[in-house]
Every structure is written in C-alpha cells, then in structure tokens.
Nucleic acid binder design. Structure first.
Length: 450
RNA sequence: UCCCAAGUAGCUCAGUUGGUUAGAGCAUCUGACUGUUAAUCAGAGGGUCGGGGGUUCAAGUCCCUCCUUGGGAGCCA
C-alpha cells in the first residue's frame, strides 16, 4: 500500500492539477475580502496560492469562520485548481471546503515593516516571511551545489570532529566545555588539521560542517557559529588550490542561477552581476596589492596607544583590513584572489614561497559587491622540521601537534586546501543586508535565542 | 574590547525653547462591501514614555547612572 503522505499536494505542483480538485495544507499568509468574497493567500512552504471563498457557494456557518481567519492560522483547503493571472503565483483555488486546524491569535509579524531587533527576536516566525523563505531556499541550493561539486569531482566527504582537544590556530578564541575526566574540550573552529590527515588517507577530501569562533565580532559578516566547507588535496600546490576555489565558486553561483530564479526575483537581486561570475576570476599577489594601495593613496589605519592614526604609504608587511579590501575590490566585477601574504600575518602551517621566504603560499578570495572574504586557503608546510620550528616560533604546545607532525613523518607530500564560508557566500548571492539572515538560527555575540 | 547611535501602544514612528487629558499609521475587536492581493470605508479598545536617581512650581523632553538594542572598527570564513 502506498504511504498516505505521497498523496499530499503542494502549491509548487499546482500546474499539474488544473481543473482537478486538490486539498492543500498550509497557513494563512494574508487574507483580504470584499463581503461575500474572501481571498485567502495560503502558503505551504513550497509557494503561495490564492484561495477564493464565495459565500453563496459555501456553508454559511463555515463562511463566518473563514471571515475570522487570522494571519498564520493553519488550515486545509479543498477546491478546484484554475489558472488565474490576477492571482499571485498564477494559480487559484475555488474553495468548496476548509478545515481550520488552529486559529492563530495576535501573530506578531505583520505585513508592515519591523525593526531588526524585533525580527531577530522572532526568528522562529520570521523564517516564514517571503524574503527569509527565499534566502533559506538559496542557502539550501548553495549547500547542495557544494556537495554536488565535490562528490562529482572525486572528493570523499570526511567529517571532522566538533569537539577538539586544542586550538588549530592558537590565536583565535575558542568556546570551552567540560569533557568528562579529560579536562576541557573546545568547539572546533576549523576542520583543517583533520582534513589534512584525511587527505593523506583518501587523496582528495572535504569536510563540511559548523565552525565555532568565540571572537567578539559585532559586524554584519560575522557569526559565532557558521558553516564552512574545507577541501584538502594531497599533491595539490597553491595554483591547483586557486583553480579549484575558482571552479567551486563559479559552480555554486551558476547552480543557484539555474534553480533559484524565482527566489532571486523575490529578493530583487541584480541577476546580471551573478551571470557574470565565470572563470577566469582575477588574481594578484599581496605585493601587487600593496603597490596598488600605495599608488592610490589608501592608508593603513591603525590604533597606537588608543589613538587612530593613518599611515601612508601603506607599509609592506601589514595585513589588509576591510577599508583596504573594499578599496581594491571596487574595480572588480568578479572575485579576486590575493595570494602570497607576508609570513608574519598568516598561520603557522602555511608553506613559505620557495622563491621568497618572506611570503607564504596563502590565498584569500574576495567577492565583489562588498561580499568580503569568502575563501581563505593555502599550500601547507609538508616538511617535518620546518613545521616543528614554526610550532615552536608560534609558542604552540608541541605535544598537542604530535599527530599532526606525524603526517609529515609518514609519507608527507605537498598538499593544499581552503575554507569557504557558506553564510558569506549566501549573503553575497542573495544580497542580504546582514549575515544573520543567511542561516536559520544565527548565533551572534549578544544573541543565542531563539 | 573600542567608537557612534537609539530605546514612547503588539509593530513602525511623531512628540517644538520643559507647560492642560501623550498622538498617527498598521495590527486587534465591531460593522459595511463579489476581484482583493500592504484592500477600502465607519467606529472602539489599547501607554509604568527602558530601569533607578536628580534638577524644577512642572520632565517623554534637561543632568547622572545602569540595562538593552542597532551600526562601525579590529579579527576572520
């Protein structure tokens, strides 16, 4: 016998049922009426559909109940599907029966405007609104595109642990928790080190999951919990790594364009800017980027003794901040990869450039339209002694990295990888104003509810 | 952590140099309406002006303090 759920009908499939009677199950998005004629805008998660209730064709007592329906009340609607250009979505239901499941009372989010704080406090309900719904659908597509891209290109998914015994890059702050009798455990801020071990086993791998950072960042592009995909490839050098990063980003954007036209339209996104996201992207070295900053008189802003000072020309060796990155990106309509950063500003595991030991084989991809940094990656140091020296220089606990050093002791090979921030990419593609709109339940410095 | 801004009805906001009983739109409730789609029209209810302290004959309005929220910086994906 076929499962009952397979007979359920959804708004996204209405075109298949023109002229037929269907039962839709959903919620009242909005209701308008004109006396004997009532219009219910029903949403069921797959779309919206106008349902028309005409009093003379309807049970009188039930019609009074329909008139009192409120926003977000849940109901089952039975009626005949017809094509109707006046209806949002293009289809309409001529209703002959309605079963009210629950009458909502005082739904807080109205069709009118609301403030940021109010909406985020009601995130569990805000997700129902058209705009958030569209962003979540695109997020789902981005995640599917990521998985498809790697799965179809010979990569094996190798999950990294969320609970870890130590920092992967000593500097950032970590969330701490108790772990039985073994002392403290930390929530992972990156799966990379485990990714490297996995790559030595499987060749090409990716790890995909949440990452946690206890940074006190309060900006529109930071979350304390965010999703990151981190491929790691044995025998890939920095150029291979950059090529792969470009292929991935191109694939994600083109996939969303293919399957989310309706959502992009809802969001009023300028599609032409996304259609343009095709390889080749742009590349420049850190040193070339500094030359550009110097030529264009972009200063370094730094705080010295609590006072903000501007330093020109921009000194080689300083890391870029948001002002520098945005200035550079203004000239580009596609992502830009900046590579070969000064050794001192980057992580201990990155491999120095054999042609210039002052820089490491690192790369960051910056998105256009103020998307910011969407990818950070590098070729890793594969030499045992060099890596051990770096761990000592950075004053990291040597014991904690024994297993990581083992990877250089037993068949160490050149290898590379990167991390791509899912929410940053979703923010860029959707044009969302704030990263909190790109994840169902955002975790931020001053908010953990709902 | 640092800098800036804001807290007035369920929501979004207005509220003059301090001065009668603090206002509007939306939402809610009541009524009218056969094509609405942020429906419209008529009526009604709804307030510890973020908390505490102070100045004053008088404070939503001025001062101090605390709390909450938003934006930005640094750090990063």
């Amino acid at each position: 016998m076929e499962s009952r759920y397979k007979s359920y009908k959804y708004i996204e499939d209405l075109e298949k049922f023109i002229g037929q009677e269907v039962t839709l199950q959903g919620w009242v998005k909005n209701k308008t009426g004109k006396g004997k004629l009532q219009f219910i805008i029903l949403r069921d998660g797959t779309g919206i559909c106008q349902c028309v209730v005409y009093k003379p064709n309807f049970d009188e007592a039930l019609f009074e109940e329909v008139k009192s329906l409120t926003q977000e009340s849940s109901l089952k609607v039975t009626g005949t599907v017809k094509k109707e250009d006046r209806a949002p979505g293009g289809y309409e239901i001529d209703v002959n029966n309605i079963e009210i499941i629950q009458l909502a009372k005082d739904y807080p989010i109205t069709p009118k405007e609301h403030g940021d704080a109010f909406l985020i406090e009601h995130r569990h309900l805000w997700l129902r609104s058209t705009r958030q719904h569209a962003i979540m659908r695109i997020r789902a597509s981005v995640m599917k595109a990521i998985r498809d891209f790697f799965d179809n290109n010979g990569f094996v998914i190798m999950d990294s642990p969320m609970l870890t015994p130590n920092a992967s890059e000593g500097t950032s702050t970590l969330f701490e928790t108790k772990y039985f009798d073994l002392g403290n455990a930390y929530l992972s801020q990156s799966g990379q080190l485990y990714g490297e071990a996995s790559a030595m086993a499987m060749g090409r791998i990716y790890t995909f999951g949440p990452a946690f950072r206890a940074e006190r960042s309060k900006t529109r592009k930071h979350l304390t919990e965010f999703w990151m995909v981190e491929p790691e490839m044995a025998y890939f050098d920095l150029n291979d790594d950059m090529d792969l990063a470009e292929d991935l980003v191109e694939y994600i954007v083109q996939y969303v364009l293919k399957v989310n036209q309706a959502e992009l339209k809802t969001l009023e996104r300028d599609i032409s800017k996304l259609e343009n996201i095709k390889r080749p992207f742009y590349r420049m070295s850190y040193t070339e980027a500094v030359d550009w900053l110097v030529k264009n008189n972009i200063p370094l802003k730094k705080k010295i003794d609590g006072k903000e000072v501007e330093i020109t020309p921009f000194p080689w060796g300083e890391d870029f901040g948001t002002p520098q990155e945005e200035a550079i990106m203004e000239q580009f309509d596609k992502p830009l990869i900046i590579h070969r950063y000064p050794t001192d500003v980057k992580a201990f595991y990155m491999k120095p450039d054999p042609e210039n030991s002052k820089v490491v084989l690192a790369m960051d991809m910056l998105g256009p339209e103020k998307a910011g940094e969407i990818i950070g990656g590098s070729q890793r140091e594969e030499d045992y002694d060099n890596l051990l020296n770096k761990i000592k220089q950075h004053k990291l606990p040597e014991e904690a990295f024994q297993w990581y050093l083992d990877l250089r002791k037993f068949g160490g090979v050149p290898h590379s990888g990167f991390g791509l921030g899912v929410e940053r990419v979703v923010k860029w593609i959707t044009g969302a104003a704030h990263i909190r709109e790109t994840i169902p339940f955002p975790r931020m410095i001053y908010r953990i509810v709902p």
